[in-house]
Design a protein around this nucleic acid. Structure first.
Lengths: 143, 143
DNA sequence: TATTGTTATACTCTATAACTATA
DNA sequence: TATAGTTATAGAGTATAACAATA
């Protein structure tokens, strides 16, 4: 049985579109923006250390990531230290305040999704979604 | 085995974020925008007939959908006819030009995703994604 | 020459507000 | 009062351009 990738692509495109609009809707005022939370989370996972690396991972321009990183620093959620071995690089790290934000799940968007998942789906369906999530990650990186 | 919905939510949120950024990147100049293609596709599937209905389905404000619909009409991809039974409603329909755009897959974004799917995934993985797609639809509507 | 980062500007998508017309 | 649609304005998110400093 051959998979109709065109239909699947269209289906993914539309469902992702609706999801993104719902997710983007306002968190509590003063909370970090969505791209800020994503960058903070990326940084916390430890795979990336500089703004340029974060930009590559999130597939946005270095300039856009620069703006996000600056805002996170102003909020005191990350620290920037000059790399002693490379004068161009600024090593980023999550501050204790940043870790607190991550740990306290203060991100209203993820909470919204988690609540929807618990409300809407059976254990089998959640398992299916859990298997699909890494595939979507791969798809994003592969495009 | 209990599912960790918080982790799953976070995973979905980040992968969707990357996907959306890749997908949004420019189609051929002059092509309909992404929201325009989505609305056209919705209309073609026949479930919705007016701008307000499309807005509800896509979960955006009626005003935003109004802008999209106006642009589609200016492109000649849809027609607007006054509803003889309700003076407020404008019944939308896909024109032959609009059908052509849909049929010719002139939407570079879906083509991009389809190519990525074929390149990156096995038949089993595609099957998994195909099962997950409607769940993501449900999630979007449920949030 | 390539990379990191900064600043400035502009575009896309969507929201809210304010309004008219019809039900 | 509620709904469909329009127009105007504003905000978030990201892009491109231009630049300085370092490799």
């Amino acid at each position: 049985m051959t998979m109709d990738t065109d239909s699947l692509a269209e289906s993914l495109r539309t469902s992702i579109g609706v999801l993104i609009r719902r997710i983007r809707q306002r968190p509590a005022p003063g909370d970090p923006s969505w791209p800020e939370m994503t960058a903070l989370s990326d940084l916390d996972r430890g795979g990336e250390q500089t703004a340029a690396e974060l930009a590559r991972h999130e597939q946005i321009s270095p300039q856009s990531m620069g703006t996000i990183v600056t805002s996170l620093a102003h909020r005191g959620l990350i620290a920037r230290l000059a790399d002693p071995e490379d004068g161009r690089r600024m090593i980023l790290s999550v501050t204790s305040a940043g870790a607190e934000v991550l740990a306290s799940k203060r991100d209203a968007r993820s909470t919204l999704i988690a609540a929807g998942l618990e409300r809407e789906f059976s254990a089998d369906e959640l398992e299916l979604l859990a298997q699909a999530a890494p595939l979507m990650d791969r798809l994003g990186q592969a495009l």
